[in-house]
Simulated assay, not measured.
Amino acid sequence: MDIYTLVGFVGMACIIGAYAYLTAKTKPNPFVLHGTNLAGAALLTVSLLVHTNLPSLVLEGFWAAIAIYGLVKAMRARRNPA
């Protein structure tokens, strides 16, 4: 196992952990949820740039974009509580 595969496994663990967190918590912290998803997508992207799998690389791009959207939405909600 090379370092890039190990990095990919850590990214996978982040994404699975975030999903488990979302499922377990009644009111998940969006910064924890989306931040962990973004970290996982970034780590998996590093792995996929070395061990190329184009469909998975595209998936991680969307995963990261959704996580960034969630973080921006959470930051706006924190600034302007309703």
Results as ranks from 00 to 15, higher is better:
residue 1 M to C: 09
residue 5 T to Y: 10
residue 6 L to F: 13
residue 8 G to D: 07
residue 10 V to Q: 03
residue 11 G to N: 04
residue 15 I to C: 07
residue 17 G to D: 10
residue 17 G to R: 05
residue 18 A to Y: 00
residue 18 A to K: 01
residue 18 A to C: 03
residue 20 A to Q: 11
residue 23 T to M: 14
residue 23 T to A: 15
residue 23 T to F: 13
residue 24 A to C: 04
residue 24 A to R: 12
residue 25 K to A: 15
residue 26 T to I: 13
residue 27 K to G: 09
residue 27 K to M: 12
residue 28 P to G: 09
residue 32 V to S: 07
residue 32 V to N: 02
residue 33 L to Q: 00
residue 35 G to F: 06
residue 36 T to P: 02
residue 36 T to Y: 02
residue 37 N to L: 06
residue 39 A to Q: 01
residue 40 G to I: 01
residue 41 A to W: 01
residue 41 A to C: 01
residue 41 A to K: 05
residue 51 H to S: 14
residue 51 H to K: 14
residue 52 T to G: 10
residue 52 T to P: 03
residue 53 N to T: 02
residue 54 L to C: 01
residue 54 L to T: 10
residue 55 P to W: 05
residue 55 P to E: 04
residue 57 L to P: 05
residue 58 V to N: 06
residue 60 E to G: 04
residue 60 E to M: 07
residue 62 F to S: 11
residue 64 A to K: 03
residue 64 A to F: 11
residue 65 A to G: 00
residue 65 A to K: 00
residue 66 I to T: 04
residue 66 I to N: 06
residue 68 I to S: 00
residue 68 I to T: 01
residue 68 I to K: 02
residue 70 G to D: 01
residue 71 L to P: 04
residue 72 V to A: 08
residue 72 V to P: 01
residue 72 V to M: 02
residue 73 K to Y: 15
residue 73 K to Q: 14
residue 75 M to D: 14
residue 78 R to Q: 15
residue 78 R to F: 15
residue 80 N to A: 14
residue 80 N to T: 11
residue 80 N to G: 07
residue 80 N to H: 15
residue 81 P to T: 09
residue 82 A to F: 14
